[in-house]
């Protein structure tokens, strides 16, 4: 466990905050635990309050855990590492603002990785609201961290087209048919990124970031499998278990939830120390996730104590 680098005074304040909040949570749980032994049910709102505290406290007093990339995440990282500069990667923003806190860090970290490796990126989205999310990557990652990267040469945003998997069905044979221009109306043929790219089959890697429908599954069914295109994904944690069947044969790797994003971020910082000061939102979010998981586990224990006591009472009767 390493703490954030902060000035000495702030460090102590943060430490005090951490200890205090942990004490509050632990004390509260102990109180509920004792109440449970007296067979008192926990009210829904009390559970909500505890979850709130356990999520907010690590955000206010950040604690960063070091992550080790699991193989399924490492495979995505290694694939990007192995691509020669100039290769073309398609990054599809198949998510909306609601899903963004979980998957935007993945999109940002992967963009960072591709750009530092000198790969060209085609950005598109199957969710109409994905366009706004790309703007976030553009403003927060590409412009400030890669000022020398040029739109249309190093990356291009072709935006959203309605039609869900229908869009994929077309671009697997012809990009231009579906995307005659980029979002700004620049014609396909004058976009340098598209040089030598006619369809998805000419891409070196496709990464779908999302978790809904259309999403990674559609990419695999309509692009990856028929076109033999390497596909990777970043998905929300709830969807991740469903995607395991596709790994590794049909999907070369996957970032699942905040944990996957955090693993990718720490892998990136490990290989490219220049990103040490870049934001690592996923790593920061692992704190709340860890504490919240613990609190949920505590509530499951309390629930079971109540249940066992009730059953005992029922038997005695």
């Amino acid at each position: 466990m390493t703490s954030h680098l902060m000035p000495p005074l702030a460090l102590t304040l943060v430490d005090i905050g951490r200890i205090l909040s942990l004490a509050v949570i632990a004390g509260g749980l102990l109180w509920l635990f004792l109440r449970a032994i007296k067979r008192k049910e926990v009210e829904r709102r009390v559970i909500f309050l505890f979850i709130f505290v356990s999520v907010v406290a690590p955000i206010l007093f950040p604690t960063v855990f070091q992550e080790k990339a699991t193989p399924i995440v490492k495979d995505v990282f290694d694939k990007i590492e192995s691509l020669p500069p100039g290769s073309v990667v398609l990054l599809s923003y198949d998510f909306d603002p609601a899903m963004a806190p979980e998957v935007q860090p993945m999109a940002d970290a992967i963009s960072r990785h591709c750009l530092v490796r000198g790969l060209k990126i085609i950005y598109m989205c199957l969710f109409a609201t994905g366009q706004g999310q790309f703007t976030s990557t553009l403003e927060n990652v590409i412009k400030p961290e890669f000022p020398d990267k040029v739109n249309l040469v190093d990356y291009v945003n072709i935006g959203y087209k309605a039609g869900n998997e229908g869009v994929l069905n077309v671009i697997i044979t012809d990009f231009k048919k579906m995307f005659p221009t980029d979002v700004d109306g620049v014609p396909y043929d004058s976009i340098a990124v598209f040089k030598g790219i006619r369809s998805c089959k000419d891409l070196d890697l496709v990464i779908s970031i999302g978790g809904g429908k259309p999403g990674i599954k559609e990419w695999i069914l309509f692009v990856g499998d028929p076109g033999n295109v390497p596909i990777a994904s970043g998905v929300a944690a709830v969807v991740a278990p469903l995607m395991y069947p596709y790994y590794p044969a049909q999907m070369l790797g996957m970032l699942g939830g905040i944990k996957g994003a955090a693993e990718y971020e720490s892998e990136l910082v490990h290989h490219y120390p220049q990103f040490k000061n870049s934001p690592t939102p996923a790593l920061l979010m692992m704190g709340p996730q860890t504490l919240a998981h613990l609190v949920i586990m505590a509530f499951i224990v309390i629930g079971n104590i109540l249940y066992l006591l009730e059953r005992k009472k029922g038997r005695k009767r």
Binding site: G257, K259, L294
Partner: peptide, 8 residues
């Protein structure tokens, strides 16, 4: 699973 999804 809950434990496995955290550094704990």
């Amino acid at each position: 699973i809950l434990l496995g999804r955290t550094p704990l």
